[in-house]
Design a protein around this nucleic acid. Structure first.
Lengths: 394, 394
DNA sequence: CAGATAAGTTTAGGCATCGAACTATTAACG
DNA sequence: CGTTAATAGTTCGATGCCTAAACTTATCTG
């Protein structure tokens, strides 16, 4: 729990800076006068704050915008693509991915390195992650303003402490501290979070879906994770546990899962289970078979849709979140899952009678998590730009 | 969604007033110097803010406290029992209850009027509710600073709009506006909320449970509702839908429910279902039979525990909330439900293996909702005292 | 080119906090 | 009983950020 801090003038400026930068982020090309009207601040205040933001390289003012009718034209303000960037890092089971996003949300660069992280202890892997971060930072002709680290495990997001990552075999790793020690990120924020949660955020901010503010993003790679977004905000749960649906029990007669229980969703509808049931070695082959209408593959998809629907209907019933976004491996299988999953949901969801459940396909696929991590870092800058402004202006 | 407002000096004072009053609420008897140390504000600022709070009748300073060692003794500050009160109102199916709570959390008065609200249209009932409010206000030798209204239905808490209350037969009633029109509450805040949610808050603040910050409070009267508290904060869900567990499907072969679906929890474990199954006319008789070890009654309790456990295990699995508090009618049946419910939960909850689920009995019982509503009003004053201070001082 | 309209800047003033000095109260010690 | 040290609380000038209002700059219209 964060201790409440006393407020002073600096708090006011911090708040208003966020307001101004936020307004510019929301509607690029807006003028100082426009920002003033939007935020309720006076033109004088906006001018002063914008000047500081420009000096800090967060904002640039461009050409005067054309306008109708008389009056001076306002200068178009927008977030600076040369300002601080957000760095996203994903520690996958068999790869390390990085991604740089500028303040406007554009991807500046990205990179994936295949690494088998399963066979190695945590600190060995973190050395490689640190190297990947240093490379990304070195290549960027701008400053890195924050880092998001996506991890396939349970994270206490406030401390950055990774409690357990079964598929990596990690337990109790202080990812944030380790990475800070091994890099020269200065005092940049390092946000460590669950890979499924970051993926949901990636889809929220970069998925191109209009008005999508309440949804469950299901990402199935090795494990099954869900990121739940409600009113545009990630739902974290009690101890960062929100959306841990991989081990919801769906079939009491199902096979034993690695967690010890029986018939967990992961054991019934995880990637391994699908592939085994379809009798194929990998997802590429599975997709080919599905396209060829192979009976076993189709039946595997049907089974996955059924179990996913069972588990997700609980989520929908309990949280009243009306949309499911299929991500990760499920995004590739979406055409074959869509209808069956929808049927299952409509059958089991109480509110389905008066408001239909929706199933969408992720547009970012397996890249959602890195993108989300990078975007989260960028959003943090925009949401509280004052530290950057003060550091650069004084 | 609340529009972000620009900050100014007044915002600073408002924030710091809340800090100061909050510190006094958290540790009554604290001195000005103590508040300064706790909040990080200077003694000068604290003095000034405390003086204003005293002038507004929110805070009183008492006798100098005894201290060890040398030095002047600080004056003991505490919230004023004569300051503004919170008024809780509960619109039940067959009663209207009111309750006044002072700033310290003590109940100043309460009253229950039996009324059959089922047979009457909403505006007729609201006239009676308004009368009950006026009576409570008139009897109080202090000011009412806010009102909480608990309603057995789905409420959009930001607008105070009641969407539907099946057990009252109400639809789309603007409870807040209706009550404001029919009373002279001035500009006091009127918070309209779901009865189960307020009950959970009542238990959180007035239940006397130590360190209980994450729990599900299940209240069964006519319907079944749950209030979910996570990290000491009510979980509201997407459209005030959080904790609407009454219509979770628990038995696909169960009887048809009033909502149209089959085997809803409410149809399986609601009060009506229990009484029918036990073959008794009311809860009092049921308790007598249970005490006499009546076979049918025991079997009804067993069945309730099973269905409740089925539904609640979903909640626990999904939200990782480790504690169930049995309220309302269930509180009276707790001795006979406890063990069976716990068994069912331990069977179905994934995390049960490493962290045990806990089942508690509500200490406020059927009074939890009014108490919660009144306390919510009080908490709102303490959380943002500035409007009261400014109004009274200028 | 005059008039109207809007963007952006300058300047004086208000206000809440802070820091530091100051007063008030109390225990301990000789 | 008086002195000293420690702590509580107050007073007062300085600081910083915002606001209001006047002012400058830029653009369109007739």
């Amino acid at each position: 729990m964060t201790q409440p801090r006393p407020a002073g003038q600096h708090t006011v400026r911090r708040h208003n800076s966020a307001l101004v930068v936020g307004a510019i982020a929301d509607s690029p090309g807006i003028s100082r006068a426009g920002v003033a009207a939007r935020t309720g601040l006076t033109k004088a205040t906006v001018s002063s704050l914008v000047d500081r933001a420009i000096a800090a390289n967060l904002v640039v003012d461009g050409e005067p915008a054309r306008r109708e009718g008389p009056g001076r034209r306002g200068t178009a303000l927008s977030l600076s693509p040369a300002g601080p960037h957000g760095l996203g890092v994903e520690i996958g089971v068999d790869y390390i991915a990085t991604c740089l996003v500028d303040l406007t949300g554009s991807v500046a660069s990205r990179r994936i390195r295949p690494v088998d992280n399963r066979s190695q202890p945590a600190n060995r892997v973190l050395v490689k992650v640190a190297r990947a971060i240093r490379t990304a930072v070195a290549e960027l002709p701008a400053r890195v303003g924050g880092v998001g680290v996506a991890v396939p495990g349970l994270v206490d997001s406030s401390s950055g402490f990774l409690r357990t990552a079964p598929n990596l075999g990690w337990r109790d790793v202080d990812v944030r501290a380790e990475l800070r020690d091994r890099t020269d990120l200065g005092d940049s924020a390092i946000m460590v979070g669950n890979e499924a949660n970051f993926a949901a955020l990636g889809e929220l901010w970069g998925g191109g879906h209009e008005d999508l503010r309440d949804f469950v993003h299901v990402s199935g790679e090795i494990g099954i994770g869900a990121g739940i977004v409600m009113d545009g905000v990630l739902f974290e749960g009690v101890r960062g546990f929100g959306g841990e649906i991989g081990h919801l029990p769906v079939d009491s007669k199902g096979p034993r899962c690695s967690c010890g229980a029986r018939g967990c969703l992961e054991a019934m509808a995880g990637q391994d289970a699908i592939l085994r049931q379809a009798g194929v070695p990998d997802v590429d082959t599975l997709v080919l078979r599905l396209e060829a209408n192979d009976r076993k593959a189709i039946s595997a998809a049907r089974s996955v849709a059924k179990w996913l629907g069972t588990a997700l209907s609980n989520v929908v019933n309990l949280l009243d979140v009306p949309t499911i976004v299929l991500g990760g491996t499920y995004a590739r299988l979406e055409p074959w899952l869509h209808e069956l999953l929808l049927d299952e949901l409509n059958l089991r969801v109480v509110s389905a009678a008066w408001s239909r459940v929706q199933v969408l396909r992720s547009t970012l696929g397996t890249e959602a998590a890195v993108r989300g991590a990078a975007s989260a870092a960028v959003r943090a800058i925009v949401a509280d730009p004052d530290p950057f402004i003060t550091a650069s202006v004084g």
